[in-house]
């Protein structure tokens, strides 16, 4: 579904991604972990076609994600900072892209948005504006907004790291639901419990490289790389 071939990226001369190659198959649930600055969020943004790459190729079903808007509309993305459109209510946030990008009628966009609001359990917040919503609610609206474009692949960039602990679970529950429905997902996260529960494949990145790529069930046993062991110890010791 998504092929990442020897991708490299520099930022102000600093290499962020070094020759990263990965393949994501339909139906896979991939979790990317790694210390901050390892390039995992950058990699995710490149997958979404949001950032240019300096070398290599990212193909979505054989099409370059950077060149085609078609592939971008099949890849949904959810950001750490939610980034809901501040001037629009929750339901308008969900309806906007289908209406302007796909030219769906107002009526159809609305009925789809109502379904999605129900799916993220926020039917009662349809008319609220982002600043009236809690972080967890905003993130769930952001997920609904991405789903409104009927993506085949969903990318989550640390979806809960800006949230209080009690709001984290309401967002994770929504993602778990999605995964149960068979959505292909790639998630960058620090929540190891969640990573194990949701992911069937875990990728560990460090200093712009993929250093481990293994089934989540074998995370502990198979962790050969000293850097991954150290990382796992650090985050589980808290």
């Amino acid at each position: 579904m998504l092929q990442i071939k020897q991708v490299s990226k520099k930022y102000h001369g600093e290499p962020i991604l070094k020759d990263v190659s990965l393949e994501i198959k339909e139906g896979e649930r991939v979790v990317i972990i790694g210390p901050s600055g390892s390039g995992k969020s950058t990699l995710l943004r490149c997958m979404a076609g949001l950032e240019s790459i300096d070398g290599g190729l990212i193909l979505y079903n054989g099409q370059d994600v950077n060149g085609s808007r078609h592939s971008r509309s099949e890849i949904g993305m959810v950001f750490q900072s939610f980034d809901l459109f501040q001037h629009l209510s929750a339901i308008q946030n969900i309806m906007l892209a289908p209406k302007v990008v796909k030219r769906v009628s107002d009526q159809d966009a609305r009925s789809r948005a109502v379904q999605l609001l129900e799916r993220v359990r926020l039917s009662d917040r349809a008319e609220h504006y982002p600043e009236q919503l809690s972080g967890g609610q905003q993130q769930r609206i952001a997920i609904a907004r991405a789903l409104a474009m009927n993506p085949k692949l969903m990318l989550f960039d640390e979806p809960t790291s800006a949230l209080d602990p009690e709001m984290t679970s309401e967002v994770l529950d929504v993602i778990v639901d999605l995964v149960k429905d068979g959505m292909t997902v790639v998630i960058v996260t620090h929540e190891m419990e969640f990573a194990r529960r949701v992911g069937d494949r875990i990728i560990f990145m460090d200093q712009g490289k993929v250093v481990e790529d293994l089934p989540s069930s074998q995370l502990e046993e198979a962790a050969k790389h000293p850097r991954l062991k150290q990382f796992l110890n650090q985050i589980t010791s808290y």
Partner: peptide
């Protein structure tokens, strides 16, 4: 209008004009 607003519009498949017209300008 923050960077995140641009990025979110971009990620939803909006082109430059749509992003300007429906997301950036109203704000």
């Amino acid at each position: 209008v923050g960077k995140g607003q641009h990025r979110a519009a971009h990620a939803l498949g909006m082109n430059n004009w749509q992003r300007m017209r429906y997301v950036v300008l109203p704000q």
